[in-house]
């Protein structure tokens, strides 16, 4: 059951989006997020969404994936939109007893839903089309200037790499420990919430102990392979940017301008 976890899942494919430089993809995703949060009308939001649709079509991924990535955030979407509907003042559209729904409430929650969905879509597209290792590399490179301020850029990137590497290993281990505890009569699926939380203790403690042991062995193995921090390190694969990367960035900026012009036009009118 733990095997279904999809954190930062990557779907390798041969597409224009997959081939983009990861650094540019991160920047473009940021531009997209700015777009959806600066958009102030349904028309400009629609334009921002069109940008996503173009990018998604170029990635050749199956639309089902986006629906799947949406699943875990449905409760959040419902929760925030319900709050917005009931608690924002405006012209009353509908009223039962003390509960009233206003036009502003409806509009704001509409925006909220679209923005949340767009946010998840955009960031999912980034992780679906970029392998975690490349993503880590890109983040390391983008943060390199911070190294001058003694910010531990390389160490952070190394930690991320190792964390990504050990996710499957630790999931497998958790599965094993759970089976072992079940075999000893542990009951994890019934009882009150507190009882179930307590039942997790015999799983978490062995997992922690073994993680520490693994960490120690890994550190030893890394030392044996001449690991000496980030200084003087080279990379097997370095990130290269080309014309298509700049073109994609320009396209995203163009859409951002479009969004802003629409909204400004609305303000002026």
């Amino acid at each position: 059951m733990l095997k279904d976890i999809t954190i930062g899942q990557y779907f390798p494919m041969d597409s224009a989006v997959h081939k983009l430089d990861a650094r540019f993809k991160i920047v473009i995703t940021a531009v997209f997020i700015v777009m959806i949060f600066s958009a102030d009308s349904f028309l400009s939001l629609g334009l921002a969404f069109l940008f996503f649709v173009i990018a998604f079509a170029a990635s050749k991924l199956s639309p089902k994936l986006i629906l799947k990535s949406m699943k875990p955030i449905i409760p959040i979407i419902i929760f925030t939109s319900v709050l917005n509907i009931f608690f924002i003042d405006g012209v009353t559209v509908f009223q039962i007893w003390k509960i009233r729904i206003t036009d502003n409430g409806l509009i704001t929650s509409g925006y909220m839903i679209i923005r949340l969905i767009a946010l998840i879509c955009g960031s999912s597209l980034l992780t679906y089309t970029t392998s975690p290792i490349v993503l880590t590399d890109a983040i390391e490179q983008m943060m390199k200037p911070l190294g001058k301020l003694h910010f531990p850029v390389h160490e952070l990137a190394m930690m991320m790499t190792i964390a990504l590497r050990f996710i499957p290993t630790l999931i497998e281990e958790t599965d094993k420990i759970m089976s072992a505890q079940k075999a000893r009569g542990a009951d994890m699926d019934s009882g009150t919430l507190i009882e179930r939380a307590k039942a997790l203790v015999p799983i978490i403690i062995p997992l922690f102990v073994s993680s520490f042991r693994r960490a120690e062995e890994l550190a030893l193995a890394m030392e044996c392979r001449c690991y000496n921090g980030g200084e003087g390190r080279t990379k097997l694969k370095s990130l290269v940017s080309g014309g298509s990367d700049y073109a994609a960035l320009c396209l995203s900026l163009l859409f951002l301008c479009g969004v802003m012009i629409i909204d400004m036009g609305r303000v002026v009118l």
Binding site: I162, E217, A221, C226, T234, S238
Partner: peptide, 24 residues
């Protein structure tokens, strides 16, 4: 399991060389 650092085979094999500063 406890001596493989990277999540791609070839990246892991390259780990020691990266540390030693071997040109790409």
């Amino acid at each position: 399991d406890n001596q493989i650092v990277a999540s791609v085979v070839e990246e892991d094999v390259a780990f020691a060389l990266e540390n030693m500063g071997v040109p790409p």
